[in-house]
Design a binder for these strands. Structure first.
Lengths: 145, 145
DNA sequence: TGCCAGTCCGTGCGCCGCGCACGCTAGTCT
DNA sequence: AGACTAGCGTGCGCGGCGCACGGACTGGCA
């Protein structure tokens, strides 16, 4: 049982990293957003305005990496760097309106792609899979993360 | 539906890449095998003796990367480079006995870890999850590769 | 109030792994 | 035999990462 899941997970990882998953998802969305910067964009949308350090914990990266990716997104007009009113040392990353639109489009596309591949499943099985996946993440073989 | 699966997949990717998954799995197995070289080792075990180019397709990498990783494994005594009896240009990568043992141990550990986290599930649900995962890989939103 | 240890940021630095392209060896076909 | 193809390993440049440094700012304490 754990055997097959392990193998399947490996396969999943491989295919995802090969970027078959994100391929073509950014068409027409500008140069700034790609498979490297997307996690930061998406994390920002999920987590809300925050500092790079905070977001780093969220996306599982060093502060420096987040800062650099954010710079790209900033150059592309998807993210704004603003002062933190509560603390002058801190810098708040915020999605611009265009950033908001962009992440919405990408999520829509990705969800649509997944939806499409799930549409051939028996509905009950698809639902069970989604639930199982969430559960596996929650108390699966990962750290606390 | 696709929405939640998409989000869950992202989370899964993140946690896996953070290496919480493979952490501590290589203890006592020598320096050669780590999270970088393991896919090559495992792919070789799965696919059988073959050339670097062939294995490259299997693990989703360039030939050069596979060749370099194989060199490390070779230095560690886990992989042997031998001539292909059928074609003198080709070079066959083969697991040594120790390589075999190593991959067996790692699989055992990984499977055990997954098994453990699945043990708290209702058995039917766990089984359904395993089946769903395989199915999702087979005709999920990835390319053919 | 003036000061200093502590906190937070962005960036220079070195490292590592990748893919591309080259040189080389070994088969293949006329 | 000689040209051409196929396959290998490695040098090269690129890009992203984490570490650690310098600069900006805060907050507590004299």
């Amino acid at each position: 049982m754990g055997r097959e899941v392990a193998e399947a997970l490996g396969e999943l990882l491989k295919r995802s990293l090969r970027s078959n998953l994100y391929q073509g998802l950014t068409d027409g969305l500008g140069e700034a957003v790609d498979e490297v910067t997307y996690p930061v964009l998406s994390g920002l949308a999920r987590y809300g305005p925050c500092s790079a350090a905070e977001l780093a914990a969220e996306v599982g990266l060093d502060r420096s990496g987040v800062s650099r990716r954010a710079s790209r997104l900033e150059a592309g007009g998807l993210v704004r760097r603003g002062p933190d009113p509560a603390d002058g040392r801190s810098v708040l990353l915020t999605l611009t309106e265009e950033g908001d639109r962009t992440v919405a489009v990408m999520r829509q596309r990705l969800a649509g792609r997944i939806e499409a591949s799930l549409s051939s499943w028996p509905p009950a099985e698809a639902r069970a899979f989604a639930r199982g996946l969430r559960r596996f993440i929650r108390d699966g073989p990962f750290g606390e993360g």
